[in-house]
Design a protein around this nucleic acid. Sequence first.
DNA 1: CTAGACCTAAACACCT
DNA 2: TAGGTGTTTAGGTCTA
Length: 611
Amino acid sequence: MPHSCDHRAPSFRRRERRVPVSVAMMTPQVITPQQMQQILQHQVLSPQQLQLLLQQQQALMLQQQQLQEFYKKQQEQLHLQLIQQQHGSKQQSKEVSVQQLAFQQQLLQVQQLQQQHLLSLQRQGLLSIQPNQTLPLHSLTQGMIPAELQQLWKEVTNSHVKEENSVPNNGHRGLDLSSPSPVPLKNHNQHGSTNGQYVSHSLKREGSTLDDHSPHSHPLYGHGVCKWPGCEAVFEDFQSFLKHLNNEHALDDRSTAQCRVQMQVVQQLELQLAKDKERLQAMMTHLHVKSTEPKPAPQPLNLVSNITLSKTAPEASPPLSLPQTPTTPTAPLTPLSQTHSVITPTSLHSVGPMRRRYSDKYNMPISPDIVQNKEFYMNAEVRPPFTYASLIRQAILESPEKQLTLNEIYNWFTRMFAYFRRNAATWKGAVRTNLSLHKCFVRVEDDFGSFWTVDDEEFKRGRHIQRGRPRKHAAGESCDELLVQSPALVKNIHTTLGYGPALSAAFQASMAENNIPLYTTASIGSPTLNSLASAIREEMNGAMDHGNSNGSDSSPGRSPLPAMHHINVKEEPLDPEEHEGPLSLVTTANHSPDFDHNRDYEDDHVHEDML
DNA sequence: CTAGACCTAAACACCT
DNA sequence: TAGGTGTTTAGGTCTA
C-alpha cells in the first residue's frame, strides 16, 4: 500500500527505540583538531554557528531547569491559593484553576518544543539521549564535539573555570548567557582529542562515573543503524560502523551541508520556542502578580479526605479543591488515567493510534480533557488520545444545533487538532467509517444535504452496526437484490413531522450531557474529579472558547427553526435488541439551506499560527 | 489465548 | 469524469 504515513506501525512507535544515555567513547575521528581548526577558519562551519548551536543547546537546558523550578514554585503557590480560596470565593478558585491549567499547558508546550528540539538533534545524530528523558545538562555534551567545540562549550558554560582557558578560541566570544551553568563541568579538553580521536564524555558532570558508557555506543550508532541524517545504513558490528562513519561521513561538502541544515532546523525550533517562551513568561508574570495579592487567611484542608467525602456523595455540589497530592502536584483535572491526563513531555504519545483512548469503554466525557488541553492540541501535533467516535461526538455536541455535516466535522478536526492537519485522507476515511459504523451517529438528510447527529444513549452503549452482514452493494450485485438481503440498511423516510414532539432522544441525550455531564456511570471512580472537571470545563468554555464560539462547525446561517424536509435517516438493522432503547430516529431537520463548506478559512488561519 | 474495540485501507456505490 | 460522501469489509494492533 502506498501509504507513507506512520500510522501503520503503532507497536513500533510504542516500543520506541531506547537509545542508551551513554556517550560516545573513543571514537576514531577523521577530523583532527587541526582540520577542525581549518574548518573553522574557512567558515565551512563557522565557529559562530557552532557556538550558536552549543549556545542553543545550553540555553534550552537552562530554560528547562528554570521552568521546572519556577513551575514547581508556582504550583505550590497556586495550590496554597486554591486551598485558601476554597472556602472563600468559589469563583476565584475556579479562576485560579483555569489559570493554572492554562499555565500548565503553556509550560508543557514549551517542554514539547524542547523535546522536539532534542529529538531533532538526536535524529540527526548530534545527540544521544532518550527523547522523553528529563535531560541532565551533561547529556547535551555527549555528541561529537571536537576539542574546539568543547572549548567553545567551556567558554559558554564554564565561565567560572578560568584557569582552563588555555586553548585559543579564535576570537569567538561574546556569549551572553544570562545564567551561568548550574552544573560545574569537569574539563578534559586538553586531552579530549588525540590522534584523531576524541573523548566525547569529557564534559560530564563532575562526580559522574563512566558506568553509563557502553564500550560500543556512539551517538551516531544505534540498534545497528547509522544514525547520520539520511543514512540509516545497517551494520552488524560496531567496528564496521566506525569504518563506515569514517569513510562515508568524513569531512566533506555533503557532511558540512547536512550539518548546516541541522543548524537551521535548530534555529527554527529556537524561534518557535522563543515565541512560546515569551507567552509563558507573560503568563508566569501574570500569575506571580496574582499570587502576591492579599488573600484570606490560609485554611488548612485535607484534600484527600475531601475527595473521599465527595466520593460518598457524588451528587453534592462539586467541591473546588484540586485533587492533587503532594507527589503529583500537576495532577490533571481529568478523571481518567493519571498517566495520560496531563500532557507531559514524557507522556506525549505524539504519534500513534488512539489506543487507550478516553471515553470509549466507560463512555467518559472527553470534553473536559479536550477543553483543558485545547490549546495544546491545537498547536502540537500530538495525537489526541480519543477514539474517532469520541471526537466526532464531541464535534457534533459542540455545535449549537448538535448537528454537523461531514465537512464540518472535518473542519472541526483540523481546527481543534494540529495532528489532523496531516494525512487527511487517512483520518477522513476513518471519520466516515466511524460515522457509518457506530450506531450512535445518525445521518439526517433534508432537501439541502445531509448532516450528522449523535444519539448519546447509543453512544454510551457503545454499539456498532453489526458486522458481517451482507454488503450493501457488493460488486456484481444489483442494488435491488441487496436491498432484499438487507432491507434495513438505509431507508428514506419522507416525513413532515413537526418540530416539538419530534425532538429526538438523541438530541435530548445530547442536551442532557451538557447539563449533567459528569455523573455518568463511568465516573464512579472519582466523582470529585469529575465535578472539578466539570467546573473547569465551564470555566474554560467561558474563558477560552470565545474564539470558537462562533467557530462552531455548524452552519452559521442554519436556522434553528423547524423545517419540514425530507428526512433520510440511517435506520438500525432489524434487531430485537434495538427496541429497548430510546427511539433514535432524528426527525428534526432544522437545517437551513445555506450550509456551506466555506469554513476552511479557519483552517488556514490555524495553519498560519502553526508556522 | 481469545474476544472485542479500535484503526487503517480499500472497494464500491451514489450523487453532484 | 472527478471528487465528495457513505457503506462495508478485511486485516492489523492492542487490551482486558
